[in-house]
């Protein structure tokens, strides 16, 4: 793949930056890809993790809550007996279990949207927010890919913020899954950062409360695809604000 080359003399600094988690966006993607593909660079990252590691000793241990192991054992037990999709669901639960957190995120989103929702049709007087703007928080399992989608059903404008998508060659593709369970592609989204999209009129009606948005990793070529080829890496329900 024709990646912009990161000059070798920047590896050292980049390795330290990655160990600390400083880079974002494209730089982070490139650094993670380099880490996966180049053992020498990966070793530099580990070396920096080791250099910073004594700082961990400044964090006092705190006993894990009683019953914590049982939760893990239950999750593993579930994972061992289920197929991949169910494993994913099992893993997803940990993100979703923090109901307070989710509620807080939703509340913050609401406030955020109220103040920052940008649309070209600013002149339209006081739209009825309850019927216009839908939001979904999509969360995933292992590397914690997550997405926040904000959709204006009236204009079809959609903004998707992506975080921590696995840096595989495959690209994240967004699907809406309405009540009949058939996924419909909304197109590719960014691996990191924000993407502005437009939802065609026929699909806007699918973006209703309770419909699921999901992201699967797909070949970039040929998108939007007719159907997903793999299990979702993240999913979440649509809620209207």
């Amino acid at each position: 793949m024709a990646e912009p080359e990161i000059p070798r003399d920047e590896w050292e600094a980049l390795a330290a930056e990655l160990a600390l988690g400083l880079p974002e966006g494209e730089t982070r993607e490139q650094a993670l890809q380099l880490q996966r593909n180049d053992p020498a660079f990966a070793a530099e990252v580990v070396a920096w993790e080791e250099r910073f590691a004594p700082l961990f000793d400044e964090i006092a241990p705190v006993p894990a809550p009683p019953g914590h192991w049982q939760r893990i054992a239950a999750a593993l037990h579930g994972a061992a007996n289920d197929n991949d999709a169910q494993t994913l669901r099992q893993r997803l639960r940990w993100w979703q279990r923090g109901a307070i957190t989710s509620a807080a995120v939703a509340a913050i989103l609401l406030i955020f949207l109220t103040f920052t929702w940008q649309q070209p049709n600013r002149t339209i007087p006081a739209p009825r927010p309850a019927s216009l703007v839908t939001v979904a928080q999509l969360t995933g399992s292992d590397n914690g890919p997550s997405f926040i989608a904000r959709i204006n059903r009236q204009t079809g404008g959609m903004v998707v913020d992506s975080q921590d998508v696995p840096r595989e060659g495959l690209a994240p593709e967004l699907w809406v899954i309405p009540a009949d369970g058939t996924p419909h592609s909304l197109g590719l989204v960014a691996r990191t950062g924000r993407m502005h999209m437009h939802v065609p009129v026929p699909m806007r009606a699918m973006l209703r409360d309770g419909a699921t948005l999901a992201v699967t990793m797909e070949p970039a070529a040929g998108a939007p695809h007719a159907a997903p080829s793999s299990a979702p890496v993240a999913s979440g329900k649509i809620a209207t604000i």
Binding site: R71, I72, W94, R97, T101, G144
Partner: peptide, 13 residues
């Protein structure tokens, strides 16, 4: 609360 959930995910990872 979040830390408990994160910790569970850590051991699964």
């Amino acid at each position: 609360q979040a830390a408990e959930d994160i910790l569970q995910n850590v051991y699964l990872k």
